Computed example of a mutant assay.
Amino acid sequence: MNDGHSNSNFGLGDMPSLDTPHTSANRPAPGAGAGLPPSPRGNNFNPGADPKESSFAEYVAKGATADVLVDALEVSMAIGSDDVIEGKIRIGGKKSLVIRGTVLGSVECAGRVVILSGGSVKGHIRAAALWVEGDVGETGKPSTVEVGDLHLGVQSRVIGDCTYDTLSVATPNRGIRGQLIPRSEADNG
């Protein structure tokens, strides 16, 4: 339900069907439409604001696993494999969120988000960086992802559109059903 306030929950029912063709002409601007609150650009929450703080490039280049990455992060919150969280998660600062369980709602994190194999987010994600080894979105309820750095790992499955500054994709993966949209294209679209 979107009541116009930046702290409202995302409306998953407002998302277009995955069978609907997505083009620049009918794609909402990042943060607009699709039940998302206005983009947080311009305030303290800015995905990808500091590439050194949010990049996974060094980990990807070394062939690191998500578990190695998690050991190197300063974690603010970890969701265990048996945990199910309903509602919106919002984390400020530069700390990270690690998800091994299920989130039934949106995630906003000024730092990094890591979804490990077996973990899932069934809602929208806005973060400085996102490493996916689990699932994002679900059939009939696609997610919208807006991040600075996006890494889709070998176990990743994404249902929904992703807007990003930088992208790395491991192969094989479990698939992407939606569009991968460079922010430069989204900002000019």
Rank of each mutant, 00 (worst) to 15 (best):
S143K: 06
N44H: 10
T144S: 15
D165T: 10
A72G: 05
V147I: 15
S96C: 03
W131C: 05
A78Q: 06
S168Q: 12
G148P: 11
H151R: 00
M77L: 13
T144M: 13
L116N: 14
L152K: 02
D161P: 06
C109K: 04
G123H: 11
M77Y: 02
D50R: 14
S117V: 07
S156I: 03
D71L: 08
P51R: 13
G123M: 11
L150G: 05
C109V: 06
K122N: 10
A57V: 08
A66Y: 02
L116C: 12
K122W: 10
L97N: 00
G93I: 01
T163C: 08
T102P: 02
I91V: 13
K88R: 13
T166I: 04
V136H: 03
D149T: 09
E86T: 15
D135H: 13
C109W: 02
V169E: 02
E146Q: 13
T102N: 05
V169R: 09
K141A: 14
G80E: 07
A129K: 10
A127S: 14
V169K: 09
T163Y: 12
G101A: 04
T166M: 04
T163D: 12
K88V: 03
G137W: 10
V70T: 06
I85T: 00
K94F: 00
P51E: 09
V98H: 01
G153A: 05
V60L: 07
D135N: 12
S156L: 05
D50V: 15
G119F: 10
A170S: 12
G160R: 09
E58P: 03
P142R: 12
A110H: 09
C109H: 03
D165P: 02
E138P: 10
E53F: 11
G123S: 07
